[in-house]
Amino acid sequence: MTELNRPPLPHDFHPSVPSFTVVSEDIAPGATLGDAQVQAGGNTSPQLRWEGFPAETKSFAVTCFDPDAPTGSGFWHWVLFNIPATVTELPPGVGSGRFEGLPKGAVHARNDYGTREFGGAAPPPGDPAHRYVFTVYAVDSEQLGPDEDASPAVVGFNLRFHTLARAQLIGEYGAPAEA
Rank of each mutant, 00 (worst) to 15 (best):
G171E: 06
D66Y: 05
A61H: 08
A167K: 01
V155W: 02
V133L: 10
L169G: 00
G95P: 03
F13I: 07
P124R: 15
L48T: 00
E3A: 14
R166P: 03
A177N: 02
D147T: 13
V107N: 02
G171Q: 04
A85L: 11
I170F: 04
A179Y: 08
F157A: 12
L169M: 07
D66R: 00
F20C: 12
D140F: 02
F20V: 07
R110I: 12
E142W: 07
P18G: 15
G74D: 01
G95D: 04
N5I: 08
T32S: 15
A179R: 11
S24M: 07
G74Y: 02
T86V: 15
A167I: 08
K58M: 09
Q168Y: 13
K58A: 15
A179V: 14
D127C: 06
R131L: 10
V22Q: 01
S141T: 15
F75I: 03
E148N: 14
K104E: 15
F75D: 06
H108R: 10
I27S: 07
V17P: 06
T88E: 07
H11T: 14
E117F: 08
P103W: 06
F13C: 00
P67C: 11
E89Y: 02
R160N: 02
P146W: 01
F81W: 03
P91N: 09
F60A: 03
V155P: 02
S73G: 07
A106V: 09
K104W: 07
P84W: 08
F81R: 05
G114P: 10
A106D: 05
N158V: 10
G41C: 08
E51T: 09
G30Y: 14
L102S: 09
G120R: 04
G120H: 05
D68T: 06
R98K: 12
L48I: 01
A153Q: 15
P67L: 12
L4T: 10
G171S: 10
A55Q: 12
S59A: 12
P54D: 11
N82G: 09
F118H: 03
G93W: 01
F118T: 01
A177S: 07
L33R: 04
L33T: 03
T88Q: 05
G156F: 08
M1L: 01
V133P: 02
T115W: 09
E117G: 11
T57P: 07
H77S: 12
G156P: 09
V94S: 07
Q143M: 13
S16Q: 15
V139R: 03
A85V: 10
T115Y: 13
H162K: 12
G97N: 15
Q168K: 14
S59F: 06
T57L: 09
E142S: 14
L80V: 13
F118P: 01
